[in-house]
Design a protein around this nucleic acid. Structure first.
Lengths: 142, 142
DNA sequence: CCTGCACCTTCCCATCATGGGAAGGTCAAC
DNA sequence: GTTGACCTTCCCATGATGGGAAGGTGCAGG
């Protein structure tokens, strides 16, 4: 199976399949005489695993760990669960940060009539501060 | 005032101040005879504005718009509010996506005992799918 | 006046995952 | 045998940020 078909079936673009190969996330694909990469069902399985893990927001490096654990029949599910729980925490932390930004900005936006006059509490909030921005996204101060 | 002091006062790193200058987000700083950049209160004001906007998650390009509006005394607050509301939507959309990933992964993790046995529903979920991953983060399918 | 240190300058590189595109080879259908 | 769809490798771009090297500046203490 050519890379294009593998891409369609696995849901990973051909570009990314080559990239994953280049960083060693998937083993080098077999080659035909022509030089074309050739994929079999084990490859597709691995690529689909990667796509699903990416869909859950795992980084490539984390997926590398998951793939090792996947291939290790003697692995303990404790390790896998630990990785998952860590990842859940990180996802939720990022979500919280974004939501906090949105909330802060909404507070400013609610103070703005949006009625066409020049007076604008949003701009004033950015200008004068009162430090409304997300702490964790802000560089350290003094 | 040197760039290091401007960085401390504004909360924007010296590296980023130079970068913002290079992309035209701030005007070229004045220079001393030595070649050192020299910052005044207007510069600090602008940098602080940028830092707060970054803290609210605005992209540099969006901040460019906000800075134009900031400098335009005849601006309408309608435009500013529109940018803010658009940005709030985007932030919340991203937060939702992350939270959705976390929720999907939590569902898998809850099915995993983490008791040290090899059996692991998390790995199985990644392996076999049932398409648990976040729709919006997943490449198109057929 | 010299030395040392902290600061400044520019320039290049790395991140992370992904896509775009060029130049050239392969394959299959007509 | 031509055409068009596919493949190959290689390079570049993204966005915002930091790291670091090589070399110049400024100031304080001796």
């Amino acid at each position: 199976m050519n890379i294009g078909q593998a891409a369609q079936v696995s849901g990973v673009s051909a570009k990314m399949i080559r990239y994953y190969e280049s960083i060693g996330l998937v083993p080098p694909a077999g080659r035909r005489d022509s030089g074309y990469r050739d994929y079999g069902s084990a490859d597709l399985h691995r690529l689909s695993f990667i796509r699903r893990a990416r869909g859950l927001g795992f980084s490539v490096e984390r997926i590398r760990l998951l793939l090792e654990l996947w291939g290790d029949t003697h692995r303990s599910n404790t390790e896998v669960k630990a990785i998952a729980l860590t990842h859940i925490d990180e996802l939720e932390e990022r979500a919280r940060q974004l939501q906090e930004m949105a909330d802060n900005l909404r507070t400013l936006a609610q103070a703005c009539d949006g009625d066409g006059r020049p007076n604008c509490p949003i701009i004033q909030g950015l200008e004068a501060g009162g430090e409304p921005a997300c702490d964790s996204a802000r560089p350290a101060r003094h």
